[in-house]
Design a protein around this nucleic acid. Structure first.
Lengths: 225, 225
DNA sequence: TATGTAACGCACCAGTTAGTTACTTAATTG
DNA sequence: CAATTAAGTAACTAACTGGTGCGTTACATA
């Protein structure tokens, strides 16, 4: 009942425990399981016992590797931010026109949220707790600076080429690009009820992405498609 | 210790318990206290005992009036939606030009979130639980239809007068108006850390509202200010 | 004043839950 | 190969936590 039995319908990920001992692998399994559990139920709703079960590990190991529940959440959160910022940096936008670079970034942000919905609830949970778990993380600030720089560079190129208007704050643009995708997806459940439409239907998703690209292009002053 | 003692630093609202019995007042105090507690800690993190304390009521009364914790959350959530939709309907946008009506709506949405931050975490909590608590609420669907109609009417007037472009989906516009304010404010804690700026500083708030108005006006195709 | 009804409150329970203790087993090293 | 270190496990505990049983008190009405 303890190993095979699914608790509250939560399945473990298909990462079987290795025969031999492997500290790194165990740590990684715990981290992955914690990310899922925290994403599914929030920091308060997540259960340490369930994380251990999902990770196919012992609860004692969680405390051995991460200290306590809050520290585990902190590690999960930082890793989630590092992941998305790393993916963004790999985007190779320099060889594209400013307009196309921006379109690609909007699409990437949208698709990243779509493929990694746990990121959304993790961030929501972090903010419910007033960002406490992100404080004193130099790593986070470093990768965020790179991100702002990325958008700033596209913006500058666009202005130099005369296709974007001047004076746009890269941070405000960043926030807006994130907002128009994030809000739609994180509130997809209440949204589907309130607006009486299936937010996650493929056609609806495509429609929203196109709307978002249009929103951003018009914001920066690029001429219409 | 039970009446005066603040539990985990949560203060009761200054609504003292009346000497005489008053069912409506007690119910209202519980609802207000629950809204605060759920907003502060989410559905999972909220404590029924604390709600009772904050309401200056007995826990037994919560179960008497609302059934259980989830049903209480449902009532809080529906009331929060009804509140914002009611406030929107009182806006009297008909006598304004389409452009000014839209600006006023964007500003109103922003200020409502700012004045009622509990609305943001309540909605986040509802979506963490996959919108389960909003299902089967006809009331919610009714007021939402009115809201979409409100924006649709502004949009139509703008198209008729030739100041807005055609073919904009009122629902997508609605979502976008909400998104650009909601995201900034609900993620103000992580945002302030990531972007190394004080999201809630008065100047920053003003700046963001102006940016949002510009975003929406450019989206609908109104000429620049 | 008697009586029924609904508001109200205390004390408790059964099930959880984060964190710990004491122990076993595998890998590493001199 | 003996000794040391680190990985892993199960049982346990103290503090919670949602929910309830059961009795009390105020008020309306006859």
């Amino acid at each position: 009942m303890s190993a095979a039995g699914a608790n509250k319908g939560r399945q473990d990920m298909s990462k079987a425990k290795p025969k031999t001992r492997d500290a790194d692998a165990t740590r990684a399994r715990i981290l992955a399981a914690a990310k899922q559990e925290f994403a599914d139920y929030g920091l308060g709703g997540a259960r340490v016992d369930v994380i251990a079960e999902r990770a196919n590990a012992n609860k004692r190991m969680i405390y051995h590797y991460f200290g306590n529940k809050e520290a585990l959440f902190r590690t999960v959160l930082v890793s989630a931010y590092v992941d998305i910022r790393t993916a963004e940096q790999a985007l190779e936008l320099d060889h594209l026109s400013p307009r196309e670079a921006l379109m690609k970034l909007v699409a990437f942000t949208w698709n990243y949220y779509l493929d990694n919905p746990e990121f959304l609830t993790l961030v929501n949970s972090a903010n419910l707790h007033k960002g406490r778990h992100l404080q004193d993380s130099d790593e986070i600030i470093q990768v965020s600076r790179q991100y702002v720089g990325l958008v700033g560079k596209i913006l500058q190129r666009g202005v130099d080429e005369g296709v974007f208007r001047e004076g746009i704050d890269p941070v405000q643009l960043n926030i807006t690009i994130a907002a128009i995708g994030y809000y739609y997806l994180t509130n997809r459940f209440t949204g589907s009820i309130l607006f009486e439409r299936e937010f996650m239907a493929p056609d609806r998703l495509k429609e929203r992405l196109e709307f978002n690209i249009e929103t951003i292009l018009r914001l920066v002053g690029a001429e219409n498609p």
